[in-house]
Design a protein around this nucleic acid. Structure first.
Lengths: 215, 215
DNA sequence: CGGGATCCCAGCAGATACTG
DNA sequence: CAGTATCTGCTGGGATCCCG
């Protein structure tokens, strides 16, 4: 841990002792989508400098929130992944992100926009129900995400799922309508209306995406 | 808002733009217990310096999270209170505090311990049920807290409640046993066992405190 | 070329003294 | 009591350099 601490016997203070420094929670957020390489993190965190990213990663590994892993072939390179302790930050990250939503009317000039961050916000509005375990692949441009719809949680990872039950391909604009536009159509509604390209059994898709309604 | 921003169109980044600076969330946490005067905050935040506290308070008022209020007589002095936007941070504060709980095995030497912070943690473990609206006063030394037990939320404020349904007086040690000791007796169990001093209708207390069991 | 380490400087945090 | 003013030192930001 760090020298500059709050010295308070309080869960919040303890948490901030570990993840309260600048950039730290943003790194955790990006890793919630899956393991990332140093260069990927550097590219996705606009404005962070190499020295600072390296320092944060080192600290987070020391703190036990991250670990270096070797990606499976064909990549086979090193990457950083959340440990269980790191992944346990998800509720806190989501709660903060939910609160910050009030400042997200629209992107400012020079704001970086990222599809992965947007999809993570689905976790907050997901209201499971149904007993299934469906995997939906979302393709936006070159990037693919695996949404696993479980009874009471939604898993969102950036990767190509093995055998998705359905595939939805759409553009950034449609995704933004689905996720952020007040009164816009939800992802499920867009799929239902065939406003986006889909593959897979439509009735299954209907079932699988229902929990994503009401966004 | 601040010059040093993340420039990311993401709820988390937006939130950290506003409350990501050092000390900020700790100030919010203390104000969750009710309005506080400058000097009280200064005293409860060990290590913060006068200039920094003043700066943070100014920024938070500008950001619309805090407002200066005049306390009711007989105090009649100025104090800082959360606005609705500020109070909306509660779930995020609680989620972070819950995560930080894993680092709270025991207070370190030179850790400040505060009964108010401890009682705030009750909000996380509260599982309402019951249809009531009971107010329980908790007295620890000179300090009094009002716990209002609602069907699906617990309100915790540091003040003397008007007409509490019950009053529990206990020492810091008992409170710590109830809140933090693994396998220790919950506040409700301590009350039931008459291990702490109580006033009020015991059966009502039984009812009112049941949601606090299982801590 | 990915994955860092080094150096330098600006700005924020920390300590103390002082003031309305 | 509720801050402001001033000084200092650390941390984060920016550019460059290094190494396998």
């Amino acid at each position: 841990m760090r020298a500059r601490r709050y010295h308070q016997f309080c869960g919040l203070a303890r948490a901030l002792d570990v993840v309260g420094e600048r950039w730290t929670l943003l790194i955790v957020r990006d890793l919630l989508l899956g393991p990332r390489r140093y260069g990927e993190l550097l590219e996705r965190l606009p404005g962070i400098t190499t020295n600072l990213l390296a320092k944060r990663l080192r600290e987070l590994v020391e703190a036990g929130l991250l670990e270096k892993v070797t990606l499976p072939p064909p990549a086979s390179t090193e990457a950083y992944a959340l440990t269980q302790a790191g992944a346990a930050l998800e509720p806190a990250v989501m709660a903060l992100a939910g609160w910050g939503g009030r400042y997200m009317d629209k992107p400012r000039r020079d704001d970086r926009v990222d599809v992965g961050w947007a999809l993570l916000s689905l976790k907050r509005r997901y209201r499971g129900g149904g007993g299934g375990d469906r995997v939906v692949q979302i393709r936006v441009g070159e990037r693919s995400f695996a949404l696993r719809l479980l009874p009471d949680s939604l898993e969102v990872k950036e990767r190509v799922p093995d055998r998705p039950d359905a595939i939805i391909s759409l553009g950034v604009a449609e995704l933004r309508e689905a996720l952020f536009t007040e009164g816009g159509r939800s992802l499920a509604k867009l799929a239902r209306a065939r406003a986006v390209e889909i593959e897979g059994d439509p009735s299954l898709l209907e079932d699988a995406l229902r929990p994503l309604d009401g966004g």
